[in-house]
Design a protein around this nucleic acid. Structure first.
Length: 568
RNA sequence: GCGCUUGUAGCUCAGCUGGAUAGAGCAUCUGGCUUCGAACCAGAGGGUCGGGAGUUCGAAUCUUCCCAGGCGCACCA
């Protein structure tokens, strides 16, 4: 890539210059670089390096810029100058642009893709409890995890997308209880249980599909405390009708996962691996990930015993309090279970781990990271990406979502209103650390303004022209045409650089904005430059620009996870 | 109270690891379809970048203090 070559040249020049001056200063690499200019009338590439280094060289920036700029030499440079407070501005020549455009066409589907082997990454995302269908908040995590995975694998990482299924624990028992009470006649108050319509559906399906044993409702008086009462009921059915309990629990979890998978499939988001909490085994079993993780942490002397429980000394690592790992009754807490899960991840030998969580989990990150660092192998590391929550509004009024109370906007309902590619653009154009207020009515009214249409329309225009006439690569390019449209071409030929940047920055929204800009440049180009004309050379150059644009848009769509349309 | 996070045009958002005149879309206003798809283009107006202070050649961007919103502070998951 030209920018990398220019940076290389710039760094060598600066190095030479400092040797001449007999100075031995080590510079930060990012201080010595060119950036792609956003104003092509000013420059194709510009650098503020002289401004940054003037102090080290004890000279004024303009002077330094002149010195450096005179020494920079690259065959692609057509003009280089010093402007402003000490910026180096350079233009590249027509020959180079033309070569680059040819390269884009040659690489086609591969343009922007790196073939280097960069290591194995495990991306965990969605991981919603199978106690209810996915809702709009999960959808945000889903599209985010998907695009981050795509960006990474495009950069040459070997990516595994994983969904962690919490199929054990109290929440699952509550799910089972909710379905059970819906299945058998009883007069028990359902307060605190899962109340969504999907529970009724599960119960109906359960009755149809299985031979069930009848269970009675408990005769003894239940606690007046909701949570206590739920636990009493769970114990009553679990111990009183173990066979039915297990049947209904397994059935409910299985069915919920079927639903979740179906929703994700509709979004064309497919996890490579579904990891079940229940497969972690028990702490009693020495060989389980749970036991191994606990063992390592205890041996690292970062635990203490209090009230019969084993606590992790989180305060040593900046947590505000210590956390229980193993309860006095030898039951693992959720924390230990998750640490055990990460032990399992570690043993599967990835180089890098990314967890994509909703921002409501942020308090959990420090804890998990400290434990991870104690049990990891060297050269492994973990990273958390937190996305802010989606607020649901109904007619301007905020409505609080709750899976338990059955109050949420399900992904399935969302998909009935909007196509999945539209939803992807909607979520991904916003940075993930920004909250989103979602009002279905408003969203319907505004859906026409979704950048999806604007961007896709540019692609459709390209396709429709290319259907009429194909560019000829063997003919000479009208280089004047290329230079005239450099603003568009700059994005096209620097596409791999942009992708690398977006991946490194973990800023998928930038890719969406980038495609919007490419589309804008193309729309503008389209209005001003009839592509199919009698002037063969001119027409061919414009066809090449059209083809190159379509390549960059198509490759971007693939990473974003939307289907390119040839007609709309 | 402590911690994390957000505050940029009327609205929805980019820009934030310091760089040149703070950008889009929507809305408002003015133009453009007999020609490759007008789901588009060209142009106009609209800003104390939440507020104060600091760091420096330079601050929307870094530091700090306020103000306002969101989230989190379990032997729940």
């Amino acid at each position: 890539m030209i920018i990398e070559e220019l940076n290389q040249e710039l760094r060598e020049t600066v190095k030479k210059f400092s040797k001449e001056k007999d100075l031995d200063v080590i510079f930060k690499e990012k201080d010595i670089e060119f950036e792609i200019s956003d104003d092509i009338n000013r420059a194709h590439f510009s650098s503020s390096t002289p401004l940054k280094l003037a102090k080290f060289f004890k000279t004024n920036p303009v002077e330094l810029a002149k010195n450096i700029s005179e020494k920079i030499n690259h065959k692609a440079i057509s003009k280089s100058s010093v402007e402003g407070a000490g910026f180096i501005n350079i233009f590249i020549n027509q020959r180079h642009i033309s070569d680059e455009v040819k390269k884009v066409l040659k690489y086609d589907k591969e343009w922007g893709k790196k073939n280097l082997k960069k290591g194995k990454v495990l991306v965990e995302f969605v991981s919603s409890n199978p106690t209810g269908p996915l809702h709009i908040g999960h959808a945000r995590g889903a599209v985010l995890g998907n695009i981050i995975s795509n960006l990474l694998s495009n950069e040459g990482y070997e990516v595994t997308k994983e969904y962690y299924v919490n199929d054990a624990g109290r929440q699952i028992n509550i799910l089972a209880l909710s379905v059970l009470l819906e299945t058998f006649p009883n007069k028990i108050n359902r307060e605190g249980l899962y109340l969504g319509n999907y529970i009724k559906d599960l119960a109906k399906k359960f009755v149809k599909s299985k031979l069930v044993y009848f269970v009675n409702e408990p005769e003894k008086i239940l606690s007046s405390d909701t949570e206590e009462k739920i636990d009493q009921l769970i114990t009553y059915y679990k111990e009183g009708s173990p066979k039915t309990w297990k049947q209904i629990k397994d059935f409910s979890v299985k069915e919920m996962i079927v639903l979740i998978k179906a929703d994700l499939l509709k979004m064309e988001i497919i996890h490579d691996n579904w990891f079940y909490e229940s497969s972690l085994g028990s702490v009693e079993k020495k060989s389980s990930s749970l036991a191994k993780a606990l063992d390592i942490i205890v041996k690292s002397k970062n635990t203490l015993e209090k009230d019969g429980a084993i606590w992790f000394q989180g305060t040593k690592f900046g947590d505000d309090k210590n956390r229980v790992l193993l309860r006095a009754n030898k039951e693992p807490t959720y924390y230990l279970t998750d640490v055990g899960y990460h032990k399992n991840k570690i043993d599967r030998n990835f180089d890098h781990y990314i967890n994509i969580f909703g921002a409501d989990h942020h308090g959990y990150v420090a804890r998990l990271t400290s434990a991870f660092n104690l049990i990891k192998k060297s050269n492994q590391d973990i990273e958390h990406i937190l996305y802010q929550l989606v607020n649901l509004y109904e007619g301007g009024r905020k409505s609080t979502m709750s899976t338990r109370r059955g109050k949420f906007l399900s992904l399935a309902d969302l998909l009935n209103e909007f196509n999945s590619d539209l939803i992807k653009f909607f979520f991904l154009e916003k940075k993930y650390d920004h909250e989103i207020d979602f009002d279905t009515m408003l969203a319907k009214e505004n859906s026409k303004n979704n950048p999806y249409f604007y961007t896709m329309y540019a692609y459709v225009r390209c396709c429709s022209i290319l259907e009429k006439r194909k560019p000829n690569l063997n003919k000479n390019l009208d280089t004047n045409e290329l230079l005239k449209n450099y603003e568009l071409l700059s994005k096209i030929i620097n596409f791999p650089f942009y992708l690398e940047k977006f991946t490194l920055e973990r800023s998928p929204h930038s890719l969406v904005h980038f495609t919007k800009e490419v589309a804008a440049n193309y729309h503008s180009f389209y209005e001003q430059n009839p592509v199919i004309t009698d002037n063969q050379e001119e027409s061919n150059a414009r066809l090449l620009i059209t083809k190159a644009t379509s390549i960059v848009l198509k490759n971007s769509f693939k990473i974003i996870g939307v289907t390119p349309l040839e007609k709309m």
